[in-house]
Nucleic acid binder design. Structure first.
Lengths: 351, 351
DNA sequence: GCACACTCTTGAAACGTGTCAAGAGAGTTG
DNA sequence: CAACTCTCTTGACACGTTTCAAGAGTGTGC
């Protein structure tokens, strides 16, 4: 009935024979209003189909009660789990979340950041691209609390939730080295996002420490690739095309999605995993266990990262300083079927 | 510098020695302002770090320029593609999208719908749950254009984008029947969402028509299951436990995710796909081709559904009536490796 | 019957912007 | 120089809420 969009608090007041102030009190401080009036007002609201005008409340309040979530790349299932964690926690705390997705496009990221500023969101959770400190800096200067996810930060006035990806890279590499592999490859763009960089650092660290401690020389190749399954497929083909002596016996991928592609290409070219090549992913996204060869991978607690970030933000918004301000999760090695001891191509040829 | 949250148009006006109206014109109608003043104002905006107050503009304008996208289930990769389509199209048209995700929870769906109403979004794209016509009805009555996705509607004052899932069910069943299967099973909850119901209807139609036209009797079992990979795994175990004579020779799943689970369980129990059992998915989500057995499935154009819905909405918002108001996409059979002719258990036992 | 306490209610002000009618200048024409 | 046109600029108002000081009403105690 009627057009709810045009019904205001004063229409309700008129119908219920009370003042605007009373209607407002019914909505925001019901205890201050006598039962009789409250019921009259509620009746009038129902009759008119009145809907609060969020913008007006917001204008009066000076800030909204919405929290922004800016995702780097919503197609990556890992980040969806982050979003799920954020949503579950904020909805439990009575906050609304506005999600947007930059799709690894730095321009869009800026646009959305501006939108969030203009919308005067109460707080912001960001899974950021790399070089965009300036945008974040500005919004922080405006007094909006920001939690950065997947990038370790420090400082009394900042908040962050991250994963120790150096340790993750180490886990992956040590697992392979422990199985006897001496020729490794890391698939992923070295110049890409910080987390990817860290994983490679971890792998290098493991390689270097093996050299010093056990006096075993490990060869490590870095195969650059975008962070998509398609790019993985290309790398897989490169690997398949190498002469067996030159080919690494084990591959660590920067993210599971990449490993998916590598796996697919290897199998297509007749190479068996793990017999001819061991493969380690990274993230443990839900599909990892359902692949043709369930993937050994490094698990990151995406959902918990989301809830943790949301909780920090909610605590800040309620006025208390969150404790701690920086959380770093430790990743975990999950061994499935894609890794094994290397075959010995010198003695027994794989056909 | 300073706190941008507290800088208003009048501070800018004071610094630039102009009136508020002129600042507003610089922001909204730059052509009405002389170059000299414009530059002074722009300078002042820069100096003060002024950020427009969205809520105030919104209040003045009466409606926001944000579009709401309410997703039924953002964990399903298919819906993520819908979101991607919506985002790409709306951002090309200069609209901002606010995404929220009900996670198949009808209470959350209502909450978000209320939030969108209160936020006076310019328009809404909804992938709805089933029984919640009332909420949508109210918001439509308020004059907010709504596009419903994945549910065919009719009527001059409505808009919808859907897929002919009856045809999709038929495609799947005819493919299997054509291969020679005479005992089929449909996995999915009959009482679930409309699209699932339609798929089953399509399967039944194909079965019935085969009976009338070719006089061939097809047996069809319906195995209820939630729409998750886990539920699929349970069904797969049930199937594996059946005596071979009782077991259907081919299975159609309501969605790919379910088929993933079924596949995994079957393989784990030593049944081969497609030799011992053919399997058809539904959706063609990106991981489908990377499974241990790449899945034959019914492709739905999720991304295009998103762009189409967004375009309809954008057209409506720009004042023109969209043409047409209801779009139904036809699904497509994608044959991969999970389907083949049935083995003949009566003559040759599977070992 | 007066003072006081207490509970509800009221009406106006303020939040920051966009709009619009009216006005100020500057230039042009007769 | 007056009359007119045209381009910019101005300042007040409205949008729909919440808040808050002040007022109205109702008991209660002496």
């Amino acid at each position: 009935m009627g057009s709810p969009g045009r019904v205001g608090i004063k229409d309700v007041a008129r119908l219920a024979h009370v003042s605007q102030g009373t209607v407002s009190n019914v909505l925001n401080h019901p205890d201050r209003v006598s039962q009789a009036r409250r019921e009259a007002v509620e009746q009038a609201i129902e009759t008119l189909g009145f809907v609060r005008h969020e913008a007006a409340r917001h204008l009066r309040a000076g800030h909204s009660s919405t929290v922004g979530l800016l995702l780097l790349d919503a197609w990556n299932p890992g980040f969806i789990d982050v979003a799920r964690g954020v949503e579950d926690m904020t909805s439990a705390r009575g906050l609304a979340v506005m999600i947007s997705n930059s799709g690894r496009d730095i321009e869009r990221e800026k646009t959305y950041l501006r939108l969030f500023s203009e919308g005067r969101v109460a707080g912001l959770i960001v899974v950021p691209h790399d070089e965009f400190a300036d945008g974040l800096h500005r919004i922080r200067a405006g007094g909006v609390p920001v939690v950065v996810v997947d990038r370790a930060e420090t400082g009394e006035h900042r908040m962050s939730v991250a994963v120790n990806d150096v340790a993750g890279g180490e886990l992956a590499a040590r697992h392979l080295i422990g199985l006897g592999h001496r020729h490794l490859a890391f698939v992923g763009d070295e110049g890409a996002a910080k987390p990817v960089h860290d994983r490679l650092t971890g792998v290098r660290k493991a390689v270097a420490e093996t050299r010093t401690e056990a006096n075993v020389e490990i060869r490590l190749d870095v195969l650059p690739a975008d962070l998509t399954a398609d790019a993985g497929r290309t790398v897989g083909e490169q690997l398949a095309a190498m002469p067996p002596g030159e080919r690494p016996t084990a591959v660590t991928a920067a993210i599971d999605l990449l490993a998916f592609g590598v796996l697919q290409a290897l199998l297509q070219h007749g190479l068996r995993v793990p017999e001819h090549m061991s493969l380690v992913g990274y993230d443990d996204i839900p599909f990892t266990r359902q692949l043709s060869v369930p993937l050994t991978t490094i698990r990151r607690p995406h959902y918990d990262m989301g809830t943790t970030a949301a909780e920090m933000l909610a605590t800040t918004l309620s006025g208390k300083p969150p404790q701690p301000r920086h959380v770093v999760f430790e990743p975990e090695l999950v061994v499935r079927d894609s890794t094994s001891r290397p075959s010995k191509p010198s003695r027994r040829k794989p056909r």
